[in-house]
Design a protein around this nucleic acid. Structure first.
Length: 598
RNA sequence: GCGCCCGUAGCUCAAUUGGAUAGAGCACCGGCCUUCUAAGCCGGUGGUUGCAGGUUCAAGCCCUGCCGGGCGCGCCA
């Protein structure tokens, strides 16, 4: 079992703390905020000063005295009120570096207690083309999945299709008006429906908005759609057959979109998969007095829980949530009920420790209600449930992104634009002119996607952000393309230098950039830990960018392939190799693919 | 009315959940290509962190009250 560099340091400091008579639990060690003062800093003295009622400076002196005994720590110094700064010896750094180079995971440890985690993301709806709204859910969910998996957790990605609610009823109704002669609408017919779908994906995408506006404008149509939804949910054969066609048709299109996005799922489950669980669940909830009938609907009320003595987390914040409707007065099952059934189903099938829902922040209330309800009914069986909300993607006007005609931009169109923009930039810079047509197209695709993904992930998850394609596809600055460029350039150095010699070893570090670069890479485990804890991919984006900048600084300062001494050249080549592997790994964790050349 | 999110450089965004001098990128100014991809590197200008109090060795971050913006709040998902 490997340990991270910082964990090793922490361990060493613990020992020193003990000999100095301080609580080893108070060890704080991190890479320096002020690199010119040292590689690492320990800020424990300020904390300890409180409990020991002494000056932080005195504590710092005692710490330094004890730390002096640690063989691989050097250049100990106290600064400011009691910050302790220090460096690692080059010998120690070389040993660590060689370990990293020789390991497929670059020496990055896995968590000691892996959890079983389901990540629910993507969430496309039947018949609705995927749009900008699905972009963040897909990109963020995919990144979290990869990061947690790399950390060693057992992660299952579930697309969780929206394939069972009123929208389907509206579609059925719409089609029944357009083509009433179809066999699906014959209530007497129970089997032998056509194999071939009566609609194409284009039909569906055209029909859906038409159906919605029809139902919105005319109450009779809405009633009819509700009725048909309830009938579908009660198993009317013709509607079931029709629904299967809708589902298969749109699923093929969704799979295509996800494929282009580089997003994949372990499970393609949906609301309809738990349809059979809903009725028994609702009955059970009613029987147990958790759900009740009110004005014809079945719902769960969240009265302020009368104190049973167990819960005493701030009495004032037990505020009243609005009721959660499970079944509407006309018998339609809502997505709240489906979500509860899904929790039950997940626990039964996978018994996860944690379920993450990567869904738009605007659904925050819904999830609070659902989680609370699941908790009360004991459906989650100890499984943690967490809504990973995210902000909207806005246009230049600060409002949710719209097309010129005012509609919601399609995901496919957005990707096309990014692709085109990336292609234009490549041409402007006269890059890849000697490559074939197909490779140029592939590069443009990867660059465009990297641009969009990095820009999305780089923003704080909970905040809204402005979608500015020209900005994202820029090749300068903190962008996806810059990161790709950095990796590709390193790989080019390796190729030109004939690769890493078999006997290459880190021997001695001679420039500051070399040390800084390696130390930076070695801190990735702590970064990933923070990313996971905060569910914040933007923290990893920050790391990726800092790393790329350090790589480029190194690139300029140290011309690897011109180094005359073979030993040093091997050492440098190895550093290039480790750097390229590290940055490639980080990009991979973000869901960003690197072209072989560009 | 209640609840959630946001307010940081001209613009777009960070800030290791309370640590040192609030950082990047665009934009602007000045350097660096006969040398591994200049999509790069090095340096510079730019700030009362929305406002006012409070908590402490230390506040962009925590507490209180305002101001401004976004979103949500029983039969849509």
């Amino acid at each position: 079992m490997t340990t991270s560099l910082l964990a090793t340091l922490r361990h060493a400091l613990r020992g020193a703390f003990e000999t100095a008579g301080f609580d080893p639990e108070t060890v704080i060690v991190e890479t320096s905020r002020r690199p010119e003062l040292g590689q690492f800093q320990c800020n424990s003295a300020m904390q300890l000063a409180k409990t020991h009622r002494t000056k932080p400076r005195d504590i710092a002196e005692r710490l330094v005295a004890a730390l002096g005994a640690v063989p691989f720590i050097t250049d100990l110094a106290i600064a400011g009120p009691g910050f302790v700064n220090f460096n690692l010896t080059d010998e120690f750094l070389a040993v660590r570096a060689n370990d990293m180079a020789g390991d497929a995971r670059l020496g990055f440890p896995k968590v000691e207690a892996p959890a079983k985690v389901v990540i629910d993301y993507g969430g496309p709806n039947v018949a609705k083309p995927m749009h900008v709204g699905h972009l963040r859910a897909s990109i963020i969910g995919e990144a979290l999945k990869r990061i947690m998996r790399f950390r060693g957790h057992d992660v299952v990605g579930d697309v969780h299709l929206g394939d069972w609610g009123l929208p389907i009823g509206m579609l059925i109704h719409e089609l029944s008006l357009r083509q009433p002669g179809l066999p699906y609408f014959d209530a007497a017919k129970t089997e032998g429906f056509p194999e071939e779908s009566p609609v194409t994906i284009d039909d569906l995408e055209e029909m859906y908005p038409a159906a919605v506006s029809r139902c919105r404008e005319n109450d009779d149509d809405m009633q009819a759609a509700r009725r048909k939804t309830a009938e579908l949910q009660n198993g009317r054969p013709g509607y079931i057959a029709l629904w299967r066609h809708f589902m298969q048709t749109s699923r093929a299109s969704q799979a295509g979109d996800f494929d282009r996005l580089g997003v994949s799922f372990d499970l393609w489950r949906g609301e309809s998969d738990v349809a059979d669980l809903v009725q028994p669940l609702v009955r059970d909830l009613q029987a147990r007095g958790i759900a009740e009938v009110d004005q014809g609907a079945i719902l769960i009320r969240f009265k302020p829980a009368e104190d049973d003595g167990s819960e005493e987390e701030g009495e004032g914040d037990e505020e009243e949530l609005t009721p959660l409707i499970l079944v509407t007065s006309d018998g339609t099952v809502t997505y709240a009920a489906t979500d509860l059934a899904t929790i039950q189903d997940r626990v039964a099938r996978l018994s996860p420790d944690l379920s993450l829902y990567v869904v738009d922040s605007r659904q925050g209330l819904h999830f609070r209600q659902v989680f609370e309800a699941a908790q009360r009914a004991g459906l989650n069986d100890g499984m943690g449930m967490e809504h990973i909300g995210f902000g909207t993607v806005n246009g230049p006007d600060g409002k949710p992104l719209k097309t010129r005609s005012g509609g919601v931009p399609r995901l496919g169109d957005l990707l096309d634009q990014a692709n085109e923009e990336a292609g234009k930039r490549l041409a402007e810079h006269r890059l890849g002119l000697e490559f074939g047509e197909a490779e140029r197209a592939d590069i443009a695709h990867k660059v465009g996607l990297a641009a969009i993904k990095f820009a999305d992930l780089n923003h704080q998850r909970t905040a809204n952000y402005a979608f500015d394609l020209a900005n994202f596809t820029r090749f300068e600055g903190k962008t996806g393309p810059y990161l790709l460029y950095t990796v590709v350039r390193l790989n080019s150095v390796l190729a030109k230098g004939g690769g890493v010699p078999a006997d290459a070893r880190f021997t001695a570090f001679s420039t500051q950039v070399e040390r800084d670069l390696l130390i930076r890479i070695a801190t990735l485990p702590e970064v990933l830990k923070r990313v996971e804890e905060r569910r914040a991919p933007n923290v990893l984006c920050d790391f990726a960018y800092d790393l790329a900048q350090q790589i480029n600084a190194f690139y300029h300062e140290v011309p690897v392939n011109q180094e005359p001494d073979p030993g040093r050249r091997a050492h440098l080549t190895l550093l290039v190799d480790v750097s390229a592997r590290a940055l490639t790994l980080v990009l991979e964790l973000l869901g960003i693919e690197v072209p072989a050349r560009m």
